[in-house]
Design a protein around this nucleic acid. Sequence first.
RNA 1: GUCCCCGUGGCGCAAUGGACAGCGCGUCUGGCUUCGAACCAGAGGGUUGUGAGUUCGAGUCUCACCGGGGACUCCA
Length: 567
Amino acid sequence: MTISVPLREQIAALIRVGLQDAQTSGALPAFDLPEIISVDQSRHEAHGDYASPVCMGLSRVLHRAPLQIAQAVAQSIPAADFIAQVEVAPPGYLNFTLANAWVARQTPIILAAGESWGNVALGSGQRVQVEFVSANPTGPITIGSARNAVIGDTLAAVLEAAGYTVEREYYVNDGGSKVRNFGASILARYAHLFGVDVPFPEQGYPATYVTELAQRAQAEFGARYLTQDRDAAIHALGVWGIARILDGVRDDLAQLRVHFDTWFSEKSLYESGLFDAMLAKLRDGGYILEYGGATWFHHPDLEKDAVLIRSPQVVPTPEDRPTYLASDIAYLWNKVVLRGFDKAIYVWGADHHGDVPRVQAAAKALGVDVNRLVFILYQMVTLLRGGQEVRMSKSSGEFVTLRELVDEIGPDPIRFMLLTRTVDVTIDFDLDLAVEQSDRNPVYYVQYAHTRIAGVLRKAVEAGYALDVPGDPTLLTHPSELALVRKMLALPEIITLAATAMAPHSLTVYATELAALFHAFYRDCRIVSTAPEEVALTQARLMLARAAQHVLARVLHLMGMDAPERM
RNA sequence: GUCCCCGUGGCGCAAUGGACAGCGCGUCUGGCUUCGAACCAGAGGGUUGUGAGUUCGAGUCUCACCGGGGACUCCA
C-alpha cells in the first residue's frame, strides 16, 4: 500500500523553508509566514512544472518588489533530489522544474504501487458517511437518481483513496403515508384483476409497474387480500410492494456498479424511540413551538418556523404526521452522535437546497458542529426524447428507468457522461443521442488507451519478452515518456483536489489527459523492438506502459468503470 | 417577491484568485503492407452575457442589470 505526499505539498514545504531561511540570513526582514503557500501546476512548459505566486502576495507586507522577494527566497530554497531548478520569473513567480532523471526513476515505484498509486493521507482515518440516492422506494431508479448514485459512489471511492474510512448508505423512506398510498394503489390494481372494484387512491401511483406488482401479488397470494380487512390488506401490500421495489432498486444500482454498506430504515427511527428522544431534546432547548394544532421547529437562523408534526385536523392518522424534516433531524442525530461519524455527507438534488438551512439549524440546536455535515447539491438531469423533455415522477405515468438505459448502452458510458460535468450544471440527457453517440463517448477514449496497452503487452509477450523483468528507468529520456510519467505523478494531487473540493468530475478530466499522453507516447516511441541493441530500451518502455496501464485502471475503477483488456 | 445554480469558439463542457483561457463534437487538410486508426498531427474558430467594483493580478470574489433553469405547501 503506497501513500504519497502530493508534489505541490512537497514544494510548498520547500518554499516554507526558503521563506524562513531568507529571514534568518537577513536577506529578507522578519515577517509572519503565510498560512497557506499556494503552488500550482504550470500551464506552460516554459514555466516549469510547478509555480508559486506566494512572493507577489508578500510584496505588500514587505514593501519590496515581488521580483526581489522571489530572488531572495529562491536563493534560500534547499536543494531536493526531485527538483532540477528553481527559476524566478516576472512579476515574481517561483518556477520549479522537476528533475528528469528523478521523474524517470518514479516509473518502477508507480508500477509497484499498482492500484494504490495516488492514495494520500488527507483523511487520516476519519470516519465518513456518504448518504446518497435515497430515492423513495415507490418506483424504479430513474436517470436523475443515477446522477446522484454516480456522484455519491465516486466521491466515496475518492474519499477512500484520500485516507478516509467510508460508509455508503441508502436512507429508505419507509415511514408515513407512502406505504399506505402505495399499498392502496397495488390493492386497487390487484382487485381489478379479480373483477372487483376498489377505488384507486387520490395520491396513488398510476404507473404500469404498480399493475405488474399487482399481477405478482395475484400469482403469489391468490385472492387472500380481497377477503381480509381493507386496512390490513393495504398495509400488508404496501410493505410487501416496497420490499419488492427495493429489490429492484438494489438490482438496478448493482447494474450501475453501485453498492451500499447500509440500507437505513426511516421507520426504525420511530420504532427505536430515537425520534421521541430527539423531540424531547429540542423541546428542552426551547426550539419547539405548538400552535394551530401542529408542532413546529423554531430557530433564530430560520425565517420561518418549520413543521415537525402536522396537526390532526389536517392529517388524521398519527403515524403520518411527522414531516420529512422531523425524520431528517432524528436521522442526523443517529449519524453523527449515535454512530459517531466524523463527517456526514449528503448528496442531494438541487431541488432540496431549501432544506439545507433547516437541517443545519437543527444540528446547531442539537449541539452538533455544523461543519460535520457536508451537503453536495447537484443540478437536475432533464431527459430528452426526440428533442422533447420527458417529465418523470413516480406519481405520474410516463417513465424512463435507469434499467432500460443500462440495458441499452451499458453502465460505463452512463457513469462517465454523468460524471464529466461539475455538480453545478444541469445535464440534458438526450436518449436518442446517448444511444447513437455511445461509440463516440469520451469514455471509450480512456478505455481504448488501456486496451491499446494490453494489446502492446500481448505483442511483447509474443515477441519473447517477460513482463515482470524490471526495466532500467534511466533509459526513459524522451519528452513524451517523461510527460507521461509526470502526469502519473499528478494523481495524488488530483485525488486530494477531488476529495477536498468534493469534485468527482475532476477524475474524468485527468483520465482523458492521461490517455492523451499515453497515445502521444505510443506515437513517438516504438515500444516493442526485437533488435538486440534495443532489448533494454524495450524493457524500460514496457515498464512504463505497464505503469500507465495501472494508473488508467486505477482512475477508471475510482469512477466505477471497467478497464477492459480488449474492446 | 426571496433564495440556489448556470451564462466561456457553431454545439456540449474544463480551468485550486495567478503568466499566453483548455478539451470533446462538428468543419477543413494530412497520416495505417512494422506494437490496436475507438488513434495521431495540423488549420480555422474567443471582448469568458452586460456594466461597475475589490485586488499587484478576476472566467473565478462583490454589487447591479439581462437571459435560462430550479426551490420557496401542515407535498413526498
